[in-house]
C-alpha cells in the first residue's frame, strides 16, 4: 500500500537557518499522526513542503505515491489543508467560502456532508467570515479542509481557539475520517489533544525529528510517579536500591518514587511490607515532551 506521506531526507533551510533537517517519515492511510513540537520546530514548514507552497533544499516528499513537487496539483487534489494561521475572505459568507473552494476542486463536493458538518459544529454558514469569532472561523477552516473528503488531511493546530465541546466534535470527525481510510497529519503543541486523538506521534525539535512512537509507548518509556503509604513504619532505603527506581520523598508513613521502565521489581520489593495504599501516575504527554525537549540533542 502506498504511504499517505513519505519523506526522505526532507530538508529546508533559509539562508543559514535550518528549518527542517533530513526528515524521514512514513504515515499510513487511516492513521492519525500527531506532529509535535514547540513553535519554530519545523511543523508548519513540513506541511508547506508537502503542499509545494515552499521548495525543499534537499530530500523528497510524496503523498499517496505522488511527488509533492512534480505532481503538486494532484497532491493538492488529494489533500485538505487547514493553515495554522487561518485567514478567510472577510466579505464572503461561510457558504460563499465553501462555494469558492468547491469550485477549485476537481470533483463536485458532497453538499449534504458540508451541511451536516456545519450543523454538528453549530456553525452558521450564512454569516460573513469577517463577523465570525476565532473559534467559528476555525470551524469554517475545518469544514474547508474536509470539503472534498480527501484521503489526506494536513491540519496545523486544528483545535486552536475552539471550546472543549467543539474540540471533541472535531476529534470525533477526525476519527470518523480516519476510519474511512483518511490519513490525518495533525500538527500541534497542545499535548492533551494529541494524547486524545493520535495513534502515533512524531516529536520535532529545532527542525529534527527526535522520536516517532505510538503515544502509549512514548509514555511507557518515561518515568512514572509512584506513591506508597505503609500501615507501619516505612522500610529502610536500601530495600529500594533497584535499577530504574529513585526515591524522591520519605516521611514516617509515605514514600514517593520515580520509576523508569517496569514497575514489577518495586512491587516485589514492597511485598514483605504492609502496604496501605499505592498510587501510580503515568506521566502526562506534556511531561514526556518536556523531557524530550530538554534531553534530546539539538
Amino acid at each position: 500500500m502506498e504511504a499517505a506521506i513519505l519523506t526522505e531526507g526532507l530538508s529546508k533551510s533559509y539562508d543559514s537557518v535550518l528549518a527542517l533537517d533530513r526528515l524521514d517519515l512514513r504515515i499510513e492511510p487511516g492513521e492519525i499522526f500527531g506532529f509535535l513540537g514547540p513553535n519554530g520546530a519545523g511543523k508548519t514548514t513540513t506541511i508547506r513542503l508537502l503542499l509545494d507552497l515552499i521548495r525543499p533544499t534537499a530530500g523528497r516528499a510524496s503523498v499517496l505515491g505522488m511527488d509533492c513537487q512534480r505532481q503538486s496539483v494532484a497532491v493538492r487534489s488529494s489533500t485538505g489543508y487547514l493553515p495554522g494561521d487561518l485567514r478567510l475572505y472577510p466579505g464572503l459568507r461561510g457558504r460563499e467560502m465553501v462555494d469558492l473552494m468547491s469550485g477549485l476542486r476537481p470533483k463536485p463536493v458532497d453538499r449534504g456532508y458540508i451541511r451536516s458538518l456545519a450543523a454538528r459544529l453549530e456553525l452558521d454558514l450564512e454569516k460573513h467570515a469577517g463577523s465570525l469569532s476565532k473559534g467559528n472561523r476555525q470551524k469554517l477552516g475545518i469544514i474547508l479542509a474536509l470539503l472534498a473528503r480527501p484521503p489526506l488531511l494536513l491540519l496545523d493546530e486544528p483545535t486552536s481557539g475552539l471550546d472543549p465541546i467543539a474540540q471533541r466534535i472535531v476529534w470525533d470527525v477526525l476519527r470518523e475520517e480516519a476510519n474511512r481510510g483518511t490519513a490525518v497529519f495533525f500538527s500541534s503543541h497542545v499535548m492533551s489533544e494529541v494524547d486524545q486523538v493520535c495513534e502515533r506521534v512524531g516529536i520535532l525539535r529545532a527542525g529534527r525529528l527526535v522520536a516517532v512512537e505510538p503515544v502509549a509507548e512514548l509514555k511507557a518509556h518515561q518515568f512514572r510517579h509512584v506513591e506508597v503509604s505503609f500501615a507501619g513504619g516505612v522500610p529502610p532505603p536500601e530495600v529500594f536500591q533497584l535499577a530504574g527506581v529513585r526515591e524522591l520523598r520519605r516521611d514516617h508513613a509515605t514514600l514517593e518514587f520515580e520509576v523508569a521502565g517496569a514497575i514489577a521489581p518495586l512491587l516485589q520489593a514492597l511485598a514483605p511490607y504492609h502496604v496501605r495504599d499505592l498510587r501510580t501516575e503515568q506521566p502526562t504527554l506534556d511531561e514526556v515532551l518536556l523531557a524530550f525537549y530538554h534531553e534530546a540533542p539539538a
Binding site: R48, L51, V73, S77, R87, M101, L104, R105, P106, L144
Partner: peptide, 14 residues
Amino acid sequence: EAGTLDLLLSQPVG
C-alpha cells in the same frame, strides 16, 4: 498581505 494566499495555493489548481 491578508494571509489568504496559502489557503488559495493549497487548492488543486495550478
